[in-house]
């Protein structure tokens, strides 16, 4: 795989990323220096190793800042919204898991993500129902993993 600096935007996101990592290293180091402890059976204590890591990350992110490259361009508009909709749908499914039950929340998740990946409404809904049934049978009866039935399949 070759490293390309790509369009100008990519080099910039490398630099932004490097600066964010550098700031994170400093915050982590600051937090590490404040770790409260009264006694440790070793001479190093709980602070030194995290401080070493903070130093290492700070150094590495400076090198990264000076030699950027390799970042991909960011998705724009709809593509970006779709990418972020994936964790959103997973979150919704997780929140609905207990109140509505496994089958309902999986149908919603599979249908929604199916739409994001280009399925028509027709295929997405059929896919959602089919996967909900499939995974329900696999987990409940084949693997015997506990899943909440919820309001719909509250058995």
């Amino acid at each position: 795989m070759t490293v390309s600096t790509g369009p100008r935007g990519a080099g910039r996101s490398d630099r932004v990323g490097a600066i964010v990592l550098l700031v994170f290293a400093l915050l982590y180091g600051f937090e590490a220096s404040r770790i409260a402890y009264s006694f440790s059976s070793d001479p190093l204590g709980p602070r030194v190793f995290p401080l070493m890591l903070a130093g290492a990350l700070a150094l590495l992110s400076l090198i990264y800042l000076l030699r950027p490259g390799g970042a991909e361009p960011w998705p724009q508009g709809r593509l970006l919204a779709h990418a972020l909709a994936i964790p959103g749908l997973v979150l919704a499914a997780a929140l609905l898991l207990e109140p509505l039950g496994f089958a309902v929340s999986v149908t919603i998740l599979v249908t929604g993500v199916g739409r994001l990946f280009g399925a028509s409404w027709h295929y997405a809904v059929v896919g959602g129902l089919a996967q909900a049934a499939l995974w329900f049978v696999v987990f409940r009866y084949l693997l015997e993993v506990y899943l909440p039935g919820g309001a719909v399949f509250g058995i």
Binding site: I86, L89, V90, A93, A94, L95, L97, E98, V106, L109, V110, V113, G114, R115, F117, G118, A119, Y123, A124, G127, G128, Q131, W135, F139, V145, Y146, L147
Partner: peptide
């Protein structure tokens, strides 16, 4: 196998995996 079948399947397994080991949202 199209991605609109595969990716939702991966996500279902992810939720089940995390939920069943930790039982917490």
């Amino acid at each position: 196998l199209p991605n609109w079948v595969l990716v939702p399947g991966i996500l279902v397994l992810s939720i089940v995996g995390v939920y069943s080991t930790h039982a917490s949202v």
